[in-house]
Simulated assay, not measured.
Amino acid sequence: MLKENLKQVEENICSACKRAGRSRDEVTLIAVSKTKPVEMLKEVYDQGIRVFGENKVQEMMDKQEVLPSDIQWHMIGHLQRNKVKYLIGKTALIHSVDSLRLAEEINRLSEKNDVVTKILVEVNIASEETKFGTSREDAVKLVEHISRLSNLRVEGLMTIAPYVENAEDNRQYFKEIRKLSVDIKQKNIDNVSMSTLSMGMTGDYMVAIEEGATMVRVGTGIFGARDYSI
């Protein structure tokens, strides 16, 4: 099942890239493996996937211990400041930085461990009350503040679009965050790159790619429905 699912996702990514006149190399597929057992991750790994996304710090740490060392682990879930210490030096990218206080804690521990941590600023582009992320209005100011932290590197933006039945309904939000990333890039802020745009999940990643996503986070499309009982 996983092999077939991955093949379908890959075909969809290639089709979306073709429609947008983009190269397939411009888009990184993140296999969202939260709640999934190590055996399933190994099966996906054996199909060539090397980038995995986790929502919970402890789950990521546990999987990291037993899976191959060439995997890139991405923290895509909401991150509490008291959990940051476990991630430093062990994650390729933190997608969910939504406040200066969180950024300062990541920076403090990165400095202490003599590493530079790559992050994305999470933007609540649809202004949903149930979602984390800085507002569109505050995003530029937050990026500017974080840029002054010596051991962080802002690689771009991340957003979680609303859950919709029709992926087309999210196109406007993907366009808006793409525009925001362009606006920030034009400011030429030191220590800030807007090369990464993490947006799009199983239900809408093809539309996200068409609107400029460089990373898509696909869980259900690869692994099937999540088991929330664990």
Rank of each mutant, 00 (worst) to 15 (best):
R153W: 10
I106R: 07
L149Y: 00
K187R: 15
S193K: 15
D25V: 05
V27S: 05
A167S: 14
I222R: 10
I49C: 04
M206E: 02
I94T: 03
L120K: 01
S127P: 06
N55L: 04
R22E: 11
V143M: 13
A103P: 08
M61A: 14
A213P: 13
E165H: 10
S229L: 03
G53Y: 07
I71S: 08
I30N: 03
Y228M: 15
I30G: 03
M194N: 08
L142M: 09
K175R: 14
S229N: 07
E128I: 05
E137H: 10
E10R: 15
I13E: 15
T196N: 00
L102E: 01
K42I: 01
V66K: 08
R136M: 14
K7Y: 12
L152Y: 03
A16P: 08
A213N: 13
V218G: 12
V164S: 01
V123L: 00
N151H: 14
V192D: 06
Q80F: 05
D46Q: 15
S96T: 11
S99G: 10
E26F: 03
K85P: 00
V143F: 14
N5E: 02
N12K: 15
K18Q: 13
G133S: 14
P37G: 01
E128W: 09
L197F: 10
R101G: 01
I189H: 11
R19S: 11
I76Q: 03
L41W: 05
I209C: 12
A139R: 04
I189F: 10
M199V: 11
T196F: 01
D169S: 07
K85Y: 02
E11V: 06
A31K: 04
K185F: 15
Y205I: 02
R22K: 13
L109A: 06
S135T: 15
A92S: 07
T28G: 00
E4T: 07
K187L: 13
K185S: 15
N107D: 09
P37H: 00
S198N: 07
R136P: 15
Q47A: 02
E210C: 02
T28W: 00
I209N: 08
V207E: 10
S135E: 13
E105Q: 12
Q58I: 14
S229P: 07
L157H: 08
T91G: 03
D98C: 05
E26P: 09
V216A: 02
V9Y: 07
G212L: 01
